[in-house]
Simulated scan of single mutants.
Amino acid sequence: MKKHTFMLALTIVLSVVLGACSSNNSNNGAAIETNLTAKEMVDQMLSKVEQPSLMELDAATVEQLYHLNPELLEDYSIRMPMMNVKTNEIAVLKVKDVKDMTTVEDAIKARATDVQKQFETYLPDQYENAKNYKLIKKGNYFLFVIADPADQDKLVADFDTYFTEK
């Protein structure tokens, strides 16, 4: 009897866990498509929401700051402030292989932690922005944004408009 109850409980727990994992994707299994490159997305978002002067990161800098091999990415555009007095950062990353999604997500979270540590005792308002970053997953794309909360919401809403479900 105990063995039967244990197996039933285990089955229920596994069903809940697997169900939660499978519904974690915002598109519920539909293919997500866009006609824009990562750079075009970032350029369009920044044309609508004013940000401080941002510079585009090259592959070596991406590897250094994000602890991420750019070879895992099919396309990306990452912008960060030219001067170290703002935390504003925006990144659109398209992952080549779905098996690398967790690796890329972990790298982005590590970057967010690095920015938080950098501003923890430096500028309180920028530290708050860094703590409240947005990380959005859409298909095999990630959007990472550190900005004023109102600007973040606008950037996320704009990002969502670049995709269609097929």
Results as ranks from 00 to 15, higher is better:
V95M: 03
M83L: 14
L8N: 07
K3D: 08
M55S: 11
K99N: 11
K166A: 08
V104F: 04
A91G: 09
Y162S: 08
N140R: 09
K131Q: 09
S15I: 15
Q64N: 12
S77C: 15
E40C: 03
I78P: 05
K86H: 12
N129W: 04
I108K: 00
K154M: 09
D97G: 03
I78C: 06
S22I: 14
G139A: 08
Y127P: 00
D153P: 05
K86R: 14
A147L: 07
D58G: 12
D97P: 04
D158H: 12
P81K: 11
L8Q: 08
N84K: 13
N129R: 10
D58P: 09
K138G: 03
H67Y: 07
V95P: 02
G139V: 10
L18M: 14
Q64F: 14
K117M: 08
E128M: 08
A60L: 11
M45G: 02
C21G: 13
R79S: 08
M41D: 06
E56Y: 13
A110W: 00
L143G: 04
E33H: 14
D148A: 01
E63C: 02
R79T: 05
E89Q: 11
Y141E: 00
T121S: 13
L143Q: 04
A59V: 05
V145Y: 00
P149M: 13
E105P: 10
V49E: 01
D125K: 09
R111H: 15
D75G: 02
K154S: 12
D153A: 14
A9P: 07
Q44M: 08
D148Q: 03
K39L: 13
A60H: 06
L68S: 01
L8W: 10
D125Q: 08
N84Q: 14
F142H: 05
T61F: 06
Y133F: 14
M7A: 11
L93D: 02
S26Q: 14
E120Y: 05
A110T: 14
